[in-house]
């Protein structure tokens, strides 16, 4: 089975937020909320300061705690690519999944259910890239099957230094950042 993931080149990301706007438009994200966002991390000591700009979202973890803690099964792995989704009609809004996510990637939609990034599965199933990937002006985002060694994402991970976020939380995140 495929394992969908993203690879984001932090050397190319300029933090323009096009991906954020594209996601909000594509998925009718309610005003005041976001499914993806820009994080800027600065480290070091002047004058040797490093900065990493990256676009973040749900990591669609392989061992997703939000799925295992959901009392109704609303949070689940999609058949296609192991994408983590929420069935709105099954979500009771208990918020256990929000508390269980080390990335704080979920929020309560004003209609009551818990919402998050879907990797734009409705587009992916029609052969398109997620909205955020498709609009990126610097082409810093790549989407594909991490289990397919010939995919662009797998090739990039083989050839470039990379890291994921909070791997120590043990959730096996599926978004990687090229450094």
């Amino acid at each position: 089975m495929a394992r969908y993931g993203m690879v984001i080149d932090t050397k190319k990301c300029v933090g323009c937020q096009d991906c954020v706007i594209a996601c909000e438009a594509e998925n009718n994200v309610p005003e005041g909320f976001c499914r993806d966002w820009i994080t800027t991390e600065s480290s070091g000591k002047f004058p040797t300061i490093e900065m990493e700009i990256r676009t973040e979202r749900c990591n669609h973890c392989t061992d997703a705690p939000c799925v295992s803690c959901c009392p109704t099964g609303a949070s689940h792995y999609h058949d296609v690519g192991g994408v983590v989704l929420v069935t709105h009609g099954e979500c009771i809004g208990c918020k256990a999944c929000i508390a269980s996510c080390p990335y704080d990637a979920r929020y309560v939609h004003p209609e009551g259910y818990v919402d998050k990034c879907t990797f734009c599965i409705h587009r992916v199933e029609n052969g398109k890239d997620p909205a955020c990937v498709s609009v990126c002006p610097t082409h810093c985002m790549y989407f594909g099957d991490l289990d397919d060694p010939s995919s662009k994402v797998s090739q990039l991970l083989k050839s470039r230094k990379n890291h994921s976020l909070i791997p120590e939380a043990g959730t096996k995140p599926n978004i990687y950042y090229l450094t």
Binding site: Q17, V20, G32, F33, C34, W37, I38, T39, T40, E41, S42, S43, G44, K45, I49, E56, I98, A99, D104, R106, Y107, V108
Partner: peptide, 17 residues
Amino acid sequence: MQEITTTRHNHLIDPTL
């Protein structure tokens, strides 16, 4: 020095859960 800034602003999630 290590500093993180984010553009995320979700109700009940940010700045702290």
